[in-house]
Computed example of a mutant assay.
Amino acid sequence: MSENRKEARQRVFLKGRIIFNNNASSMDCLVRDLSPAGARLALSETTTLPEMFDLYIPQKERTYRAHMRWRRPDGIGITFVDDSARPEPAAAAPPPPAEDASIAVLLRRVSELEAENATLRRLLATMAQGGTPASAA
């Protein structure tokens, strides 16, 4: 398969939230590849998505305006639209559970791993400062 991208995408495993219909509709997704120009998203269902939508990635604390480039049964490819004048939406209430059980399991696991990474970062920071780490409970 030939590569048509201008920039290589970095493989990632981030949870994301697709927001559309004037912030009235949303769905969970997993960001699987990411570059400054676009991403590949894993979804349980792609038939209800519009061509343009917002992609919120909590770990990056950023919302991207996205344009759908391709669609497959298990996901989509998107390019980011340069829309820097658009204000960042306020943090919304916690998202509803994912429609698909496998996506829900993956999103839960991503959350667990993010929490574990944060704990390990704090432990490393304590050790780097010469302190003794608190006992892990």
Rank of each mutant, 00 (worst) to 15 (best):
G131H: 15
V81A: 07
L30M: 13
N21C: 14
A115I: 05
A91H: 08
I78G: 05
T63C: 10
L106S: 10
A136D: 02
F80A: 08
D74R: 02
R121P: 01
E116M: 10
R71S: 13
A39C: 06
L120E: 05
P50Q: 13
E99I: 10
R69I: 08
Q59C: 03
L14E: 01
S102W: 04
S44K: 01
R69G: 02
A93W: 06
V110C: 01
P94E: 14
A85M: 07
A137K: 08
D33E: 15
V31E: 07
Q10N: 14
L30G: 03
L106E: 14
A118T: 04
E7M: 07
K15V: 11
W70M: 00
R108Y: 07
T79S: 15
I103A: 06
R71G: 02
P96D: 15
S102L: 11
C29N: 07
G38W: 00
S84R: 14
G130A: 13
M27N: 07
A66K: 06
L120S: 02
I19E: 10
R69K: 15
L113M: 06
D28F: 06
A134D: 14
R109K: 11
R69N: 15
A37L: 11
F80D: 07
A104K: 05
V12K: 05
A98L: 03
L14P: 05
I78S: 09
P95L: 07
K15F: 03
A98H: 00
P50E: 07
S2I: 05
R11N: 12
A134H: 14
Q129D: 12
R17C: 12
E51A: 14
Q59S: 12
D28S: 15
I103C: 01
P58C: 03
P87H: 11
E3G: 06
R62T: 11
G38R: 02
S26F: 04
G130D: 07
P96G: 13
S35L: 06
P89R: 10
D33M: 03
R86L: 08
R72V: 02
S135L: 09
E51Q: 15
E99W: 04
R11A: 10
P96I: 12
F80S: 09
M1C: 04
R11S: 13
A93Y: 06
D82V: 05
P97S: 10
V81K: 13
A8S: 09
P58Q: 06
T126S: 15
R62V: 08
D83M: 02
N117I: 04
E45T: 08
E61N: 10
N4F: 04
T46L: 01
L34W: 01
N21R: 14
A39M: 02
I57Q: 08
T63D: 03
G131C: 04
A66I: 01
R71F: 00
L34R: 07
Q10R: 13
S135A: 08
G77S: 15
S26E: 11
A93R: 13
G16Y: 01
